[in-house]
């Protein structure tokens, strides 16, 4: 993916972010920037706090300390209408798509438009069908229930929902996990296409290196609650960092000791 030209302006600025659950320190003074129009992928092993990082930015978890700025505005501790206003800048593709079982597919895609922007149902359905088409799905799929979809279809619907409100920032939580390699690549292509069309800034978390190489401008590696390496995607193979090397080559031997127990 080609890097954005106006990378100086920061869309997301994270400084000294810390979050613990009891004695377990998950994020430990983490710093990370995402520039306008930039696609940053955070890699790291399971249980290293990648999802916690996204949840802290979205306000689903409250950090113990640190600062998170969106467009220069501090968002830690925002509540009510101010938080809703900031959240309207975001779209998110969840790991398992998190589609609402009680709604048909088109209403899932149009949810942000109907509930967030107050768009009427007929207009919202039209937009939902357009968004479904942009991820390669027909209008008939829009009438199905999420339970009738395969894993790949659910991811595509999740992606359509994430881009439906034309967000400025999109988060992708393990976008290719659980998919076969071909469907994974289809999702990667769709992510690249949608992001380029929207000009959105994106933050993705994954441990699928093929996905990271395809969708990232910049890769950051999270280990023990800190970003231990960050750089352009082209530099990942010459990072001179033993942790990064072990991770991207998927070796059991190296400085990273895998946790056997969660938490």
């Amino acid at each position: 993916m080609s890097a954005p030209t106006n990378a100086a302006a920061q869309k997301i600025e994270i400084r000294g972010l810390s979050k613990s659950f009891g004695p377990k320190v998950v994020l430990d003074g983490l710093d990370l920037d995402v520039a306008v129009g930039e696609s940053v992928v955070v890699i790291g092993g399971s249980g290293t706090g990648k999802s916690v990082l996204l949840k802290c930015i979205l306000g689903l978890l409250t950090p113990d300390s640190g600062s998170i700025k969106i467009d220069g505005e501090e968002v830690v501790g925002l509540r009510g209408k101010n938080r809703d206003r900031v959240l309207r800048k975001f779209g998110m593709l969840f790991q398992n798509a998190a589609l609402f079982d009680s709604l048909p597919v088109w209403e899932n895609v149009a949810f942000g438009l109907i509930q967030g922007s107050g768009m009427d149902l007929t207009e919202a359905k039209k937009v939902a069908i357009e968004k479904l088409a942009s991820v390669g799905m027909t209008a008939e799929v829009g009438e199905l229930s999420p339970a009738e979809l395969s894993g790949g279809m659910r991811k595509r619907v999740g992606l359509a929902r994430a881009i439906a409100t034309t967000p400025e920032i999109i988060f992708f939580d393990e976008p290719t996990t659980g998919l076969d390699p071909i469907m994974g690549d289809v999702i990667n292509d769709l992510i690249v296409k949608c992001v380029q069309e929207l000009g959105a800034s994106t933050l993705s978390i994954t441990h699928d290196m093929a996905s990271a190489r395809k969708i990232a401008h910049r890769i950051a590696m999270l280990y023990h609650g800190k970003i231990i390496w960050a750089g352009p995607v082209a530099d990942i193979d010459r990072s001179d960092n033993d942790y990064v090397d072990q991770f991207i080559h998927g070796r059991a031997e190296g400085p990273i000791q895998m946790q056997v127990r969660a938490g």
Binding site: L58, G59, F94, Q95, N96, L99, F100, G112, Q115, G116
Partner: peptide
């Protein structure tokens, strides 16, 4: 299944 988190991120309380 993170549907409640999804509601939140779609600015719906």
């Amino acid at each position: 299944t993170e549907q409640i988190d999804a509601l939140d991120t779609l600015a719906t309380n």
